[in-house]
Design a protein around this nucleic acid. Structure first.
Lengths: 146, 146
DNA sequence: ATGATTATGATAATGAGTTGCAATTCCCTT
DNA sequence: AAGGGAATTGCAACTCATTATCATAATCAT
């Protein structure tokens, strides 16, 4: 059994929930998808694969993933929540291209350290953070100049 | 005339729009409000003051403020957009208390510089960014420990 | 002042996400 | 292995923030 599956099952048994084929299938497809998928995209992907799963179940299951610590929800400003695997994955932040919607991940330990410093100065305990840089990626810049 | 009013009027005339009493009034109330107000809050505030303005106009006007560079829209994860004056205001980021919803503003030049460095390394041109630190503020921490 | 054009308020529509419910599935107990 | 209480599902109805529609009203260049 995969680590991700184990985490989910541990959360499930801890909360008197049940393992269902739907949950197992959503997990499998989620792990096999691009790293910032929306509920709708996941729904369509599964429909295309012949599944008869309902959209509400996708939402419920993605929320379950978040509660179990497997995934996190992100808002990149296009009005739909995106879900990202965070379990057993190194923390990172995002560069988001306003033109082509490409999402580039990056990590920067110096920035993280400075955030902690800011928090301490403000007597604040950080649980999570969001750093998003919006702009134009190299690809699009070139295209625009042509 | 205030700087903010001038900016708005300049945007208005540049785009063949019109100065209306509603727009002037919304601007006045917006400038006089807490710095992270929602459309609904602004609407109720103006209703309480005896205005008969419609909610749609509030939304339209706040969007106009954003287009003119006077304000920016922010999403702090509670499902409602918040609007913040950014014209003639020093850039800053936010600490958000998950318990009492208090928002603390901070600025950190070192972090900004590191962001630029990350962008350059990824061949990316930054237009704007969002840095939000979520957690528990000092006040709430104390209360919780009692 | 007039007329073309834009703005407004009320209301309907949209779209992402949630919820209620009857039917189904899971899984603990025997 | 079967029974039964509890959780889950799909569907449809609902919420809630925001936007679009449209008839009427206000603005402003001439």
């Amino acid at each position: 059994m995969m680590k991700e599956e184990e985490l989910l099952k541990s959360h499930i048994s801890k909360h008197n929930l049940k393992v269902t084929k739907e949950r197992s299938l959503v997990l499998r497809v989620f792990l096999d998808s691009e790293p910032h998928i929306t509920a709708e995209e996941l729904y369509r992907k599964m429909k295309n694969d012949g599944s008869s799963i309902g959209l509400a179940t996708i939402y419920r299951t993605l929320n379950l993933f978040c509660e179990s610590g497997l995934a996190e929800q992100r808002q990149f400003g296009d009005g739909q929540a995106r879900y990202e695997l965070v379990y057993n994955v190194k923390h990172h932040d995002h560069l988001i291209c306003k033109q082509c919607s490409r999402i580039i991940e990056f990590e920067n330990q110096e920035i993280e350290a400075l955030q902690e410093k800011v928090a301490k100065k403000n007597n604040f305990k950080i649980f999570s953070h969001k750093l998003e840089l919006y702009g134009i990626c190299g690809n699009c810049s070139e295209k625009n100049d042509q």
